[in-house]
């Protein structure tokens, strides 16, 4: 089945004009499956890390949201052990006017502003609420341990 024109155009734009700190490239054998990296935003405990994610466009995309998951371990109240992300636009707030680019920018923004009041990883959220400084330090440690390439 040929790829919908919208996906072709989005992919072209992602490659030609990538958003700062974000890369997304489709697999050669499945153009609906993307390898994604997001750089930890400056000023956040994830700064300096490069996080790998996978993004898949389901058959009903753009009517249904893309499926996105972190592959790199991350200590964040809205991202669980399996890398699943609690973000409203990936669920009920999805709109077909959103794009891969806007989704990835939203995930990058989520790294800058963790929201422990709407947790997915309950233990991390509790940690963030009770001891922000300690929790932030764990996030930094995990970033250094899992998201920094040691050359």
């Amino acid at each position: 089945m040929s790829l919908p024109k919208r996906i072709v155009k989005e992919t072209e734009r992602l490659v030609a004009d990538p958003a700062p700190g974000i890369t997304a490239s489709p697999h050669d054998d499945n153009m609906r499956y993307f390898d994604v990296t997001i750089s930890g935003p400056g000023g956040s405990p994830f700064e300096g890390g490069v996080f790998k994610l996978e993004l898949f466009l389901p058959e009903e995309y753009p009517m249904s949201p893309p499926k996105v998951r972190f592959l790199t371990k991350i200590y964040h109240p809205n991202i669980d052990k399996l890398g699943r992300i609690c973000l409203d636009i990936l669920k009920d707030k999805w709109s077909p006017a959103l794009q891969i680019r806007t989704v990835l920018l939203s995930i990058q923004a989520l790294l800058s502003s963790p929201n422990p009041d709407d947790p997915l990883a309950a233990d991390v959220a509790k940690h963030y609420k009770e001891d922000l400084k300690g929790a932030t330090q764990v996030s930094k440690d995990w970033t250094n341990k899992y998201a920094v390439e040691t050359a």
Partner: peptide, 9 residues
């Protein structure tokens, strides 16, 4: 300006 926000064409 004339692009549809759903199909982006």
């Amino acid at each position: 300006e004339l692009a549809c926000h759903v199909c982006i064409h």
